[in-house]
Design a protein around this nucleic acid. Structure first.
Length: 287
DNA sequence: AAGAGGCCCTGATAGC
DNA sequence: TGCTATCAGGGCCTCT
């Protein structure tokens, strides 16, 4: 599911709804996510206030009142649901909460507040929670990840320093979170289309102009996607259960066999598996 | 040491 | 209808 824009959409509503709210109760239905939910998870959260919800790359960072953190990665199919207490009564009775939009299965974790709860649903269980004791470990956790496209560190010099003697193709490099973080399989294809670069082009051959376009279009695509509420292919929903709209703006992703959207291009969009991930591109205008 | 490939898991869809 | 195969937005691990 979620690349940087989708995680940002979730972050915004989560921040708005849970800011300054105290965790009353935590219910774990299934510990077996990508990594096992630690045994002290409930104790770690219970009674703490949520100061704010931040994000780095595809990670949600829930900032707790004692300066500790709870990280959440949504994996491929994780969603967060905000469910209100219909009877506006005691928080601890799970049966008071209901929503027709809440999936029936795979609701692994529930975090209760006074008037609502948040539910973590994840069919494939590739998502995970991680508890972080303090800011030192938070910084350490993200130290290896590359900058987000928006950050000034993601600039021409930085990219050049990465390209030297590299044999991999540009599509692969964009998916490398240690190079740039937040871009996933959908937006990598879209960024390369806008940049008129073939996904299989070896990064060794990228020109200065190519790199400039990649910087610009990475920012453009992600920002537009956030504006449209993210992309919903199959799983992604925001915390209110609504789909995003950016999928309507896809130029290449899931457009195999359709005409290239460039007005002066007669190309057909092709789909090709590159390093085990499907890639979409126009072979006429992406060189 | 970089990079390709496999794997974690369930569900939707396609093809027979 | 019911089987099987394939594929899905991520990231980590292993092997070469």
């Amino acid at each position: 599911m979620p690349e940087l824009p989708e995680v940002e959409i979730v972050r915004r509503s989560l921040d708005k709804k849970t800011k300054n709210k105290k965790v009353k109760k935590v219910l774990i239905r299934n510990r077996n996510l990508r990594t096992k939910i630690p045994l002290h998870f409930s104790k770690f959260l219970k009674g703490k206030k949520i100061i704010k919800v931040k994000r780095f790359s595809k990670y949600l960072i829930i900032c707790l009142s004692n300066k500790s953190y709870c990280l959440l990665h949504l994996g491929m199919s994780g969603t967060i649901h905000l469910i209100y207490n219909q009877k506006k009564s005691l928080v601890t009775n799970a049966s008071f909460y209901s929503s027709p939009l809440l999936p029936k299965k795979h609701n692994h974790v529930e975090i209760f507040f006074d008037e609502f709860k948040i539910v973590y649903n994840d069919p494939r269980r590739f998502g995970f929670f991680e508890l972080v004791a303090n800011e030192y470990f938070l910084v350490k956790k993200f130290a290896k990840l590359g900058p987000e496209p928006f950050q000034p560190e993601f600039n021409l010099n930085y990219i050049y320093s990465f390209l030297k003697r590299k044999k991999k193709n540009i599509k692969n490099l964009l998916l490398d979170q240690n190079f740039v973080s937040g871009i996933g399989n959908i937006y990598a294809s879209e960024i390369l289309f806008l940049s008129k670069i073939n996904p299989e082009k070896k990064v060794f051959f990228l020109t200065k102009k190519d790199c400039e376009k990649i910087i610009l279009n990475s920012r453009k695509v992600l920002i537009n996607a956030i504006k449209k509420g993210g992309s919903s292919i199959r799983d992604f929903k925001n915390t209110a259960g609504k789909q995003g709209n950016f999928q309507k703006n896809f130029k290449v992703y899931e457009r195999k066999g359709l005409n290239c959207k460039r007005s002066n291009c007669k190309g057909i969009i092709r789909k090709k598996i590159i390093s085990n991930r499907s890639s979409f591109f126009c072979s006429m205008c992406q060189k």
